[in-house]
Amino acid sequence: MNIDTRCQIGLLCLIVMNMSACTSHPRQSIDLQEYLKGFLGKSSNTIRQDINLRSLGFQVANTPQKTSNQLIYTILRPLNIPIPMVTNVDMRGNSVAIQSGNLGGNSYDLNFNCKVIFQLKNDIAESIQYEGKAC
């Protein structure tokens, strides 16, 4: 595969990722923020017992991280980008399809995540922050 082909594939991947990031799950994002507001003013133990992000359709890392002033949940958002077929011409002028990228599959699998961070004061959630490309 030549450099121009790799650049074109890389550009296509970036365009697809940007489009997906802008358009994926807009309703879920709003629902998530509204849902999480209900946990403000509650203890970290109550949040751990009552929160159910899977009910909103999110994939979540198994165990939340707890520090003295934060409770952190990680939402996973896998993204599958199809690999385009590249056409090459052999010595006789015939078109030959070449699979670019990894040889074992027809797509790149990327995993984005969003960290939902409850800021705690005296073990009570005072605010929520979001970090990551998938928020």
Rank of each mutant, 00 (worst) to 15 (best):
Glu34Ile: 11
Phe39Tyr: 14
Met85Cys: 13
Gly93Gln: 07
Gly57Val: 09
Ala125Glu: 02
Tyr73Lys: 02
Tyr108His: 06
Thr87Ile: 15
Ile30Cys: 09
Val116Ala: 03
Gln49Glu: 15
Val86His: 12
Leu53Ala: 04
Ala21Met: 14
Asn69Ala: 08
Gly104Pro: 05
Gly41Ala: 12
Gly132Asn: 03
Cys135Gly: 05
Arg77Asp: 00
Asn113Leu: 01
Gln99Pro: 08
Gly93Ile: 05
Arg27Lys: 14
Met19Thr: 11
Asn106Lys: 12
Arg27Asp: 14
Ser95His: 13
Ala134Phe: 00
Gln28Arg: 13
Phe58Val: 06
Arg27Val: 15
Gly41His: 12
Phe118Gln: 03
Ser29Tyr: 10
Leu71Glu: 01
Asn18Gln: 15
Ser44Tyr: 04
Gln99Ile: 02
Val96Pro: 06
Leu56Trp: 06
Gly105His: 09
Met17Ser: 06
Pro26Cys: 05
Ile47Ser: 03
Arg77Glu: 03
Asn94Gln: 15
Ile83Arg: 15
Leu79Ser: 03
Pro82Trp: 05
Leu103Lys: 14
Ser107Trp: 01
Thr87Glu: 14
Ser107Leu: 01
Pro26Val: 06
Leu40Tyr: 11
Lys121His: 10
Lys133Met: 11
Asp50Trp: 07
Ser24Glu: 11
Ile47Trp: 01
Ile51Met: 06
Gln65His: 03
Ser24Thr: 10
Ser100Thr: 15
Glu34Pro: 05
Gln49Lys: 15
Ile72Tyr: 00
Gly93Lys: 06
Arg48Gly: 03
Leu40Gln: 10
Ser24Gly: 05
Lys121Cys: 01
Pro26Glu: 04
Thr87Asn: 15
Arg48Met: 14
Leu36Asp: 09
Pro26Met: 05
Gln129Ala: 12
Tyr73His: 02
Gly93Leu: 04
Pro84Phe: 07
Leu53Asn: 05
